[in-house]
Design a binder for these strands. Structure first.
Length: 361
RNA sequence: CCCGCCGUAGCUCAGCGGUAGAGCGCCCGGCUGUAGUGUGGGGGCGCAGUCACCGGGUGGUCGGGGGUUCGAAUCCCCCCGGCGGGACCA
């Protein structure tokens, strides 16, 4: 694993994660388990959302840690969740879009094994595993493992495939013979279900790594990695009527600035403050990092900081005004997104245009 | 991963410091029928039936391992297994 000490590898894998279940298992398997296999499954649901950068960064960490990383384009899963109007062609296009973005997040894609759900579903062994998993769990347990899909879940008509969904997530992990399952904290239920049944079925018990989710820019709800019934299709519509809703990797510099400047950002408060979260999870993902807060002399003049901790202290104490925070955060987010956006447009502008035309239809 | 409940007879469970129990099931018999056992009567055997009922019988590493105690199914700790819930936000 590169030339890093094992403890440094563990630290890199765990940094900025909400939780790792469990760190002990991770350490143990790095010491004795040989080459580890890991994955992240994503539901292609439209345009790449800035919240996804958080898991993308973590994914990059895992690749750099020498873990054999799979990337599962969960096309069938997305179809079950009615993403993109249930149009599998569009869903596949969205999957390609995500792969394209990841390339421009400096992930060495040559080391990544991209797998489409179609490949899994085409293999009868996959379904054999799924049936074994189903045999080991109660109906109540499966229900509990499925992420509530959308706010209208009570009245939402649920078809039976929704119950197969968690079983597929578990089967994905076993089928790919993984040591590590990476995902947003909203994936916890599925990962825990996999851990619950792994030993019973003789599969490897996956170590689960969960990254944080971003609070939506309005301060209500979440920009989920997955699980919303209203897919990005409607999120994009929303963003036209409510420009501050979310940031997409395709947003222009001005759009990003505008969205951030309009975002919910309670003074002196860090919890559920989306602007501070952007700083914490995206700008300061790598620390230390030099960040200059430009501000007029009459408001205290410029500040130079290197860690999120410093920023948080300044903000909580009230020494940093929300407006100055937003301007600084916007600048840095723009700097981070711009090269990704430009790279993606250059590489797959056509794909993107096609996707956007459908998404905003 | 976290929390809670449960694990005692084949099944459902009670017992919760002082001789391991109940109901159901299961086995045997009672009961019914016999184109067989050369014939008729009787009985036995065999075979078949038997919802319920009656009599008798059968039921156990009290999930595993440690510990406390004169004594543990019972109290304490660890583990295993089952079930339910929780697990950013809602």
């Amino acid at each position: 694993m590169l030339n890093m000490a094992n403890s440094d590898v563990v630290d890199m894998i765990c940094r900025k994660a909400v939780e790792v279940v469990t760190v002990d298992e991770l350490r143990d398997r790095i010491l004795h388990g040989g080459k580890l296999r890991g994955y992240l499954g994503f539901e292609p649901s439209g345009l790449f959302h800035i919240g996804w950068l958080i898991w993308a960064f973590k994914y990059r960490d895992l690749v750099n840690a020498g873990i054999d990383m799979y990337l599962l384009a969960a096309t069938w899963h997305a179809w079950i969740n009615d993403k993109l109007g249930g149009n599998l062609d569009l869903i596949r296009a969205a999957a390609n879009h995500v792969v394209s973005v990841l390339k421009h997040v400096n992930i060495d894609i040559s080391k990544v094994k991209v797998v489409y759900a179609e490949e899994l579903v085409d293999d009868r062994e996959y379904w054999g595993i799924l049936i074994k998993v189903a045999k080991r769990v109660s109906l109540a347990r499966v229900r509990r493992a499925l992420t509530i899909m959308g706010r209208k879940s009570e009245e939402a008509e649920t078809d039976f495939s929704k119950l197969i969904y968690p079983l597929m997530q578990v089967t994905d992990i076993f089928y790919l013979d993984l040591d590590v399952a990476l995902g947003g904290i909203d994936q916890r239920k599925a990962h825990m279900l996999a851990r619950d049944v792994a030993d019973k079925l003789g599969f490897k018990k996956p170590i689960a790594i969960h990254t944080p989710l971003l609070t939506s820019l309005q301060g209500v709800g979440r920009m989920d990695i997955k699980g919303e019934v209203d897919d990005v299709l409607s999120e994009v519509k929303m963003s036209k009527s409510r420009p501050e809703s979310a940031i997409f990797i395709t947003d222009s510099d001005d759009e990003i600035r505008k969205k951030i400047m309009n975002a919910y950002c309670p003074p002196k408060q860090v919890d559920l403050n989306p602007v501070m979260e952007l700083a914490k999870y995206i700008i300061f993902y790598d620390e230390p990092k030099k960040v200059v807060i430009e501000r007029p002399q009459r408001f205290g003049g410029p500040l130079e900081i290197y860690t999120y901790r410093e920023l948080e202290d300044l903000y909580i104490s009230g020494k940093l005004h929300p407006l100055d925070l937003k301007a600084t955060v916007a600048d840095h987010i723009v700097d981070i997104v711009r090269p990704i956006r430009e790279g993606v447009i250059k590489e797959s502008g056509e794909l993107l245009a096609g996707l956007m035309s459908h998404v905003s239809r």
